[in-house]
Simulated assay, not measured.
Amino acid sequence: MTEPIRTGPIRYATAERFARPRPVPAGDTRPSTGEICPQLPSRLDPLMGAPHDIHPQGEDCLNLSIATPGRDAGARPVLVWFHGGGFSSGAGLMDWYDGGALAAQGDVVVVSVNYRLGALGYLCLDGVSEGNLGLCDQVEALRWVSTHIADHGGDPGNVTILGQSAGGISVRLLMELPEARGLFRRAILQSTPLGLTSRPRKDSLDIGRTFAAALGTDPRTADVPELLAAQRETALANLRRSGSPMEPAFIPVAGTDPLRGPDTAFDENVRGLDVLYGWNADDMTAFPGEGDDPAEQTRRVYEKPLAQFGARLARAGARAHTYRLDWRPAGSPFGATHCLELPLLFGTREAWRGSPMLGDAPWEEVAALGTATRETWLTFARTGTPCPAPAPLVIGPGPM
């Protein structure tokens, strides 16, 4: 396979703190800072390992990267990736999410997107922030792709959006936003905990006030370390409130523009859409404290809500397909856990070196299963129907 061209970081938008993003003016040729959104260490470091690459953190973080086989008139399918991390950690610029293997194997263009996280992206507080700014960032990134991806060898009329965990929640919400209509034609949701898709505005405002009290100063002028310290205190308070180690403190807010209320335009938006969704057989081993039976918790948090979602997609006229990853790497105590499909799709051997969830599996095993998994995703991006895959990846038409 020919090594793809990697471009980035590229600034796709700018935003003042707690304001909606604005597209970069056509005459603005300043290079990107390469910043990622300020964040605390990920709660999934014990599972994934700490990232080996370090990026500057700052609020000029609306950046993306591109992997393409050629900057030509190839009009290739485009895959736009929204990372997970509980709306509080992660970045599209991380080496984990390098799209080079997908781009080379499938002759496609892969775009990996940063968006605002934590309080900067999802604080709901009267007079300060309306919430859902990270979701607004994602819409702006899709608009950038629509305008500019042809310059990178991509077809703006054949865009698949895909996301894992919180990124999958983002994909789910983008599927019903009128602002995102027409910006993509296919969607992939990976291990998406649909029960955490959004929170009522009243509860979000309560959490916003908890954050403001922990901060003790104006969120609009506080420095970043103060914001992150208050985020940590708010996460602890939310844990006491919810009893769930899995539930983030900052998530999308229901009933807030651009989320104009539950189910506002779902049927109309998804009619004719191609959707692939699924989960890993042992997703919940990543979240100790949620229950004594990870298998039952995985069914409750992932399998059952996704099956209900698939049935609703079918009723609305979408074409839905499912997957389940049953791979349990030798020597891993986590089994087919949350995030395990990521090294099968993205990144390199070096990016995933020492990842605890991979256990003792030789990279040759990861690479072979990765080739098959990528082919399934790539066929879906090209045709709307995933190709059959060898075990331990199970593909099905509609809810399993």
Rank of each mutant, 00 (worst) to 15 (best):
F82N: 00
V113R: 12
G58I: 08
S112L: 01
G92Y: 04
A104D: 08
S65D: 03
N114H: 07
E59C: 09
A75V: 00
G121L: 07
F82E: 05
R76V: 07
G100H: 06
D107C: 03
V80P: 00
G100M: 06
F82G: 03
D98I: 00
F82S: 08
A67R: 03
G118V: 02
L102R: 13
G85W: 01
A75E: 13
R71T: 12
V109F: 00
A104E: 15
L79T: 09
S88P: 01
C124F: 00
L117H: 10
L64R: 11
L102N: 08
S112M: 05
L117R: 07
Y115N: 03
A101G: 06
S88A: 15
P69V: 03
Y115L: 02
G118Q: 04
A104N: 14
N63P: 00
D95K: 10
G118T: 05
P77G: 05
I66D: 04
F87N: 13
D72R: 15
D126C: 02
G121Y: 14
D60R: 15
G85M: 07
A73V: 07
Y97L: 10
M94L: 14
L125R: 15
Q105F: 06
S89W: 01
G85T: 03
N63S: 10
V110C: 13
V111F: 06
Y97M: 10
R71Y: 02
P69G: 05
G85A: 04
L120K: 03
Y122S: 10
D98T: 02
Y122G: 06
G92H: 13
V110D: 04
L62D: 14
L79C: 13
A67D: 15
C124G: 08
C61R: 02
L64T: 03
G74H: 12
L125D: 07
D60S: 14
G86E: 06
V78K: 05
V113S: 12
G90Y: 00
A119N: 07
V108R: 04
G74A: 15
A101C: 04
R116G: 01
L64P: 08
G99P: 06
C61Q: 13
A101R: 12
D72S: 14
C61G: 03
V80K: 09
Q105P: 12
G99V: 08
S88W: 09
G84A: 11
E59D: 15
G100W: 11
A67T: 07
P69A: 14
G84R: 09
Y97T: 05
L62T: 07
H83P: 01
G99A: 07
